[in-house]
Design a protein around this nucleic acid. Structure first.
Length: 603
RNA sequence: CGGGGUGUAGCUUAGCCUGGUAGAGCGCCUGGUUUGGGACCAGGAGGUCGCAGGUUCGAAUCCUGUCGCCCCGACCA
């Protein structure tokens, strides 16, 4: 049974191309770089208003409606309750929330425009980039008893983010369509259940729309929270690196990925001798210290980086051969952090970058530090070389346990492909992906800030445990195109295609041709398909090219010759062969083919 | 915000270096011939060359500023 919940917004009969609006282009727009972006425009799905701002013209809107409806069905099935929140938010809500400092950087203000009547003043309204700050106060006000939990509210609506750099059409836009859901549970177990229910709903959503999306472990970023998965569509043009191992099933965003590089049972090396300073004039890079006459391998060097977290400098120590994965610093709990400037480093460490170290007693103003955080992998060094906090000097025989004043060990390095998987020991691989969905177990971060509590059956007041969930609907549309196209155009999966069936009428001026088109359309519709009829007075070549470009899964062709022979042609967009179908068999055949199309979506 | 690029008709663009008439293809309009994979012929409409200053007898072209857009970096669905 084909679901047609959106039928109230679309008339339940075939559309004529000439009475619709599908402006296709032969040439790609100059500002489109990647295939899916070019096809979005060429196939008449979107038009650009400005950077990261797009109009969904009718064909594109139909795809959005289909994705929206399938998403709605799956989230409903998982227990979601749909609502609709304002897009304009009082800024005070955000100021009260836990992430104003970080979030404000991507938020649009919604003041009076230009010389509007209020004139320039501090922002009072902002456009919503996401809605934790709106839903949490609502739930706080409305839900006070354990009897009313759990609840999972969602909406499918526009989001506004002032991305510093919009990119690739809908891929990273300033205004985009997102399904955002927020779960509220009485306790952690419940929150995990809600989380897993949503994870399952996401999996069915992406399966139903015909997108190959994989769930990978992810960083929690500015959202905060305890754990999180991203749904990634593998694609070269994606913004993210996924580290994975096929056999073990491990998959994580590179920002979050760990490896089994450091054995769990690694013994710390005993000191090899006294710490010894030695002159290294002009040596300010790992590479220079690797070279003669010093010849210290990078994996025997300590790399000392200085960051500033919430106004206070802190140190991160890595192996010389490793790169910092900056996102992992998020685990340290600072609400805002950045790398330190030269001016900030010298007064605290006593030297310039290139000669920095964290050996006890060499730090000029250790009291000013917010901590010394070391990557686990430095334990592999045991005894190594680091900067002496004296310009032009390094120190050797530095022992990790004896000599470094480490506040806390952690995982801060960027994993490289080829390292052993933490589960199986097999080498990790890397591939690019487009993030189309993200789920977070938030914990009580927002409920604490907004006082979202409930009373349990012991009359105790408890914080609600939250989760939040997003699917980039508009981005998903583009990701599907990126994943499913060929040199001729889009190859829509059945369930997100703007129409299921395209009837190409090669001689629309012949009344019998249009009569047959109506008959076939009726039969296809009866079978549950959406039908578009190309009744344009164009040459066949133009129609076929456009048909391939807009990528409707099933194409029926009515031509003058076939009309005489009493047949029409049937061709799938993703297959080469053309079937000639006698008119007498039309209804039965279409029922079969439409059912087949609908079934591909559920594979 | 840093780096690189770019802005000429609805779209794709030539011309810019070396200043002097803005040109093509697609699309659009009219007429005709065509009609199974982006037809052809004839005619036609459509451009403040992003914007503002400057240099010059003269600026699409050179200079300055500014704005938009695209790509690379940090960020995100």
């Amino acid at each position: 049974m084909l679901r047609r919940g959106w039928a109230d917004s679309l008339p339940d009969f075939m559309k004529l191309w000439t009475q619709f609006f599908i402006p296709t282009l032969k040439e790609s727009p100059a500002d489109a770089e990647i295939a899916s972006h070019k096809l979005l425009v060429r196939a008449g799905l979107v038009r650009k208003l400005g950077g990261g701002l797009y109009t969904y013209i009718p064909l594109g809107l139909r795809v959005i409606h289909k994705l929206t409806q399938i998403c709605r069905e799956e989230i409903d099935a998982a227990g979601g309750i749909e609502l609709w929140m304002p897009h304009v938010h009082p800024v005070e809500l955000w100021q009260q929330g836990p992430r104003w400092a970080a979030a404000r950087e991507i938020m649009f203000r919604a003041d009076s425009a230009g010389d509007g009547k209020r004139g320039p003043k501090d922002p009072e309204w902002v456009l919503g980039p996401t809605h934790e700050e709106v839903i949490t106060p609502l739930v706080k006000a409305e839900i006070t008893s354990y009897r009313d939990l759990p609840k999972n509210f969602y909406q499918i609506a526009t989001k506004f983010r002032n991305e510093i750099r919009p990119r690739y059409g809908l891929m990273r836009a300033r205004e985009f369509i997102m399904m955002d859901a927020y779960s509220f549970d009485a306790n952690d177990d419940g929150a995990i259940k809600s989380y897993l229910a949503m994870k399952a709903a996401y999996e069915s959503f992406f399966r139903r729309i015909g997108a190959h999306a994989i769930a990978v472990e992810a960083d929690t970023g500015v959202m905060g929270g305890s754990f999180s998965h991203e749904f990634m569509v593998p694609a070269e043009v994606g913004d993210d690196d996924v580290i994975y191992n096929e056999e073990s099933g491990y998959a994580a965003n590179r920002e979050k990925a760990t490896s089994g590089l450091v054995p769990a049972d690694l013994k710390d090396a005993p000191p090899a001798g006294a710490v010894e300073e030695f002159p290294t004039p002009g040596v300010v890079t790992i590479a220079a210290l690797e070279a003669a006459p010093y010849s210290v391998p990078a994996d025997q060097q300590f790399k000392t980086l200085v960051y500033v977290g919430d106004g206070k400098p802190f140190i991160v120590i890595l192996r010389g051969c490793d790169e910092l994965e900056e996102a992992k610093l998020g685990a340290l709990g600072f609400s805002l952090f950045r790398s330190a400037t030269l001016e900030e480093i010298e007064p605290v460490l006593g030297a310039k970058p290139g000669s920095l170290g964290a050996v006890k007693g060499t730090i000029k103003n250790a009291a000013a530090l917010g901590g010394v955080f070391a990557d686990e992998a430095i334990r592999l060094i045991g005894n190594g070389t680091t900067g002496a906090n004296r310009d032009g000097f390094h120190a050797r025989n530095v022992n990790v346990v004896r000599d470094l004043a480490i506040t806390k060990f952690g995982d801060f390095r960027r994993v490289r492909p080829g390292e052993p998987d933490i589960k199986s020991g097999k080498p990790l691989q890397v591939r690019r992906g487009i993030e189309v969905g993200h789920i977070f177990k938030l914990g009580t971060k927002y409920s604490e800030k907004f006082g979202a509590t409930y009373t349990d059956d012991q009359k105790q007041t408890n914080l609600m445990v939250m989760g939040c969930y997003g699917i980039g609907i508009s981005r998903t549309m583009q990701a599907v195109i990126e994943q499913s196209h060929d040199t001729d155009g889009i190859v829509w999966p059945w369930n997100c295609a703007p129409f299921h069936v395209l009837i190409c009428v090669l001689d629309p001026q012949l009344p019998e041709a249009m009569d047959l088109a109506r008959k076939l359309a009726a039969a296809a519709e009866k079978a549950g398909a959406d039908v578009l009829v190309d009744d344009r007075a164009e040459r066949p070549g133009v129609k076929f090219k456009d048909a391939d470009l807009i990528g409707i899964p099933l194409r029926l062709t009515i031509g003058g010759k076939g009309l005489k022979e009493g047949i029409f042609e049937l061709k799938w967009r993703n297959q080469k062969d053309v079937a000639k179908v006698p008119l007498a068999e039309a209804e039965a055949r279409l029922a079969t083919e439409v059912a087949r199309g609908a079934a591909t979506a559920l594979r």
